[in-house]
Design a protein around this nucleic acid. Structure first.
Length: 431
RNA sequence: UCCUCAGUAGCUCAAUGGCAGAGCAUCCGGCUGUUAACCGGAGGGUUGUAGGUUCGAGUCCUACCUGAGGAGCCA
C-alpha cells in the first residue's frame, strides 16, 4: 500500500493508496458517505459506500466529526464530477483522533471570530491557498536575487535607534540599562553591506509601531530590501520592475490552482509586463488635478490618491522624484532640481497602492551631514553611516518591497491580515 | 489621536416602542452521487456593561467596554 499526498493523486490513478489527513467535511446519504479529506497538500473527496466497507466500518463514519484525524485507504479514480478531477473509493477508514466541536463550521463567520481562531482558520481551503501563494512569492524573490548575483546579507532586528526619525519604533529592554528598538528597515545596514559585497539584499521581519487601523497595515511585516553599489535611480527602477514582473510570473506559473481557488481574475495579473509606466511626481499631481481630486503639490499621496493614479493604468506604475520635504533624509536630491528627491514608489494596480518604496541614496558627505542636522538626528548615532561617505563613497540605491502587500495584491485580498499566518496589528496580538 | 458603523442562541443574522425569531452547527430519524447536500423533529437566550426615559426598551437617551472600516503615517 502506497502512502500518497493528495497533490500527487493523479500519479496513482487506479492504484490502492493510503491518505493521512483530517476530515474537512462530510455529506451523507444513508448508504453512502462523502468524506472531504485534507492532508495539507490538498483536498479530495473520498466516497464510502456501505456495500464496499461493510456495516461496521460504515457506521464508524456516521458520526465522524469535522477535523478529526483520519487515515483512509482506497482506490484513486478519475472523476469528472470532482473539483480536483479525482476521487478515492474508500476500502478502509482509521480514526486516529476525534475532534470535538470544531469551532469553524462550513458556514460564514465574522473576521474577529476567525482571527481569534487564526491557528485553526489556516486549515481552511482559502487560507491554505493564500499561504501557498505567499510561499511562492518568497521563493520567487529569493530566486530572483540569487540568480542575479545578489548576496543575502541580513541586517539586525535589534537596532540602537531609528533609521528614519519619523516613524514610531517598538522599544525593548536590552539587558539592564539599554533600550533597543525593533528594526523598521534594514536599509542603512544594506548600504554598508553593498559597499562590501556590491549587490546585496536583506529579507526579514520589520516592525512599525504606527497606530494604523487600515486594511493596508500590519505592525509586523516581511520586507525584502535590495541595495546596489554604483547604481542610479534608473537602475533602481529597472530592478524593481524586473522583480515585480518575475514574482507575478512565478505565481501565475506555479500557483494557478490556488489563484483559481481564490477566484482571482488572473487576466489582470497577466498584464503585469515590462515596461511599467514611469511618471514623475509632477505628472502624477497633474493626473490627480485633472481627475478633480483635491491634491496640492508638495504633499505625499494618500490612499485615495494612489488608487486614483493606479486606475489610469493596467500595470504597476513607478512614480519618481517626490518633493524632498516629504521624503527621508538619506534620499539624494535631483541635481537638476534640488527640491525633488531621486526616490521612487511602485504602485500596484486595482487600488492596492504602494508595494515598493526606494531610490538613489545621498552619497555626498557634506550634504548628508547637513540633512542629519536638519532632521535633528543625533550625529554620533550615524557616525558609522557617515563613514560610508568618508571611505570610497559611490552612487548607490535600492528599495524595500512589502511581502504581504504583494501577496495581498496577487491574491486579490480585501485585507493584508490574511497574507501572513499570524498577523500582528494594533489590536491583535493573539494567537 | 480623530471620524463613521456595529455588538441579540455556539456561528451568521432578523425582529414598526408591545409574546425573543430564522438558517447553519449539535442531538434524533430518513435518503446510494452529494459538492456550504437535502428532508422531518428536538434542545439551545442575563439582547456587550452600567444608568436613564416610558404603562412597557433588543429598539429611544447618556456614559463606558469591545470590535470593524476610514483618516493621518507607511511597505
Amino acid at each position: 500500500m502506497t502512502t500518497a499526498y493528495i497533490e500527487d493523486i493523479a500519479k496513482h490513478e487506479g492504484q490502492q493508496v493510503r491518505l493521512r489527513g483530517w476530515l474537512h467535511n462530510r455529506r451523507s446519504s444513508g448508504k453512502i458517505h462523502f468524506l472531504t479529506v485534507r492532508d495539507g497538500s490538498g483536498f479530495i473527496q473520498c466516497v464510502m459506500s456501505k456495500q464496499a466497507v461493510g456495516e461496521e466500518m460504515f457506521k464508524r463514519a456516521d458520526h465522524l466529526t469535522q477535523e478529526s484525524a483520519i487515515i483512509v485507504e482506497g482506490t484513486a479514480r478519475a472523476d469528472s464530477r470532482a473539483p480536483g478531477g479525482y476521487e478515492v473509493d474508500v476500502t478502509s477508514l482509521e480514526i486516529v483522533s476525534e475532534a470535538k466541536d470544531y469551532p469553524i463550521t462550513p458556514k460564514e463567520h465574522g473576521v474577529d471570530y476567525l482571527m481569534d481562531r487564526r491557528h485553526l482558520w489556516i486549515r481552511s481551503q482559502r487560507q491554505q491557498a493564500i499561504l501557498r501563494v505567499r510561499h511562492e512569492v518568497i521563493n520567487g524573490v529569493r530566486d530572483f536575487f540569487n540568480g542575479r548575483g545578489f548576496i543575502l546579507a541580513d541586517t539586525p532586528i535589534f537596532t540602537p535607534a531609528a533609521c528614519e526619525g519619523t516613524t514610531t519604533l517598538f522599544p525593548v529592554q536590552y539587558f539592564e540599562d539599554a533600550t533597543a528598538y525593533l528594526t523598521q528597515s534594514g536599509q542603512l545596514y544594506n548600504e554598508a553591506n553593498a559597499m562590501a559585497l556590491g549587490r546585496v539584499y536583506s529579507f526579514g521581519p520589520t516592525f512599525r509601531a504606527e497606530k494604523s487601523k487600515t486594511r493596508r497595515h500590519l505592525t509586523e511585516f516581511w520586507m525584502v530590501e535590495p541595495e546596489m553599489a554604483y547604481a542610479t535611480l534608473d537602475d533602481v527602477m529597472q530592478l524593481a520592475e524586473d522583480l515585480v514582473v518575475y514574482v507575478v510570473g512565478r505565481a501565475l506559473e506555479h500557483r494557478k490552482r490556488e489563484l483559481q481557488a481564490l477566484e482571482r481574475d488572473t487576466s489582470k495579473l497577466e498584464k503585469v509586463q515590462a515596461p511599467f509606466p514611469r511618471i514623475s511626481y509632477d505628472e502624477a499631481a497633474e493626473i490627480l488635478r485633472k481627475k478633480g481630486l483635491p491634491f496640492e503639490w508638495g504633499g505625499d499621496f494618500g490612499a485615495p490618491d494612489e488608487t486614483a493614479l493606479s486606475e489610469e493604468f493596467d500595470r504597476p506604475i513607478c512614480v519618481h522624484r517626490y518633493p524632498s520635504a516629504v521624503k527621508a533624509f538619506y534620499m539624494k536630491p535631483d541635481p537638476d532640481r534640488p527640491e525633488v528627491a531621486l526616490g521612487v514608489d511602485v504602485l500596484a494596480p486595482e487600488g492596492y497602492g504602494e508595494i515598493i518604496g526606494g531610490g538613489e541614496r545621498l552619497a555626498d558627505y557634506d550634504l548628508l551631514l547637513q540633512r542629519i542636522k536638519e532632521h535633528n538626528l543625533p550625529q554620533e548615532a550615524f557616525e558609522w553611516y557617515l563613514d560610508l561617505r568618508r571611505y570610497g563613497t559611490v552612487a548607490h540605491g535600492g528599495f524595500g518591497m512589502g511581502i504581504e502587500r504583494v501577496v495581498s495584491w496577487i491574491c486579490g485580498l480585501e485585507h493584508l491580515r490574511e497574507a501572513i499566518p499570524y498577523p500582528r496589528m494594533l489590536y491583535r496580538l493573539y494567537p
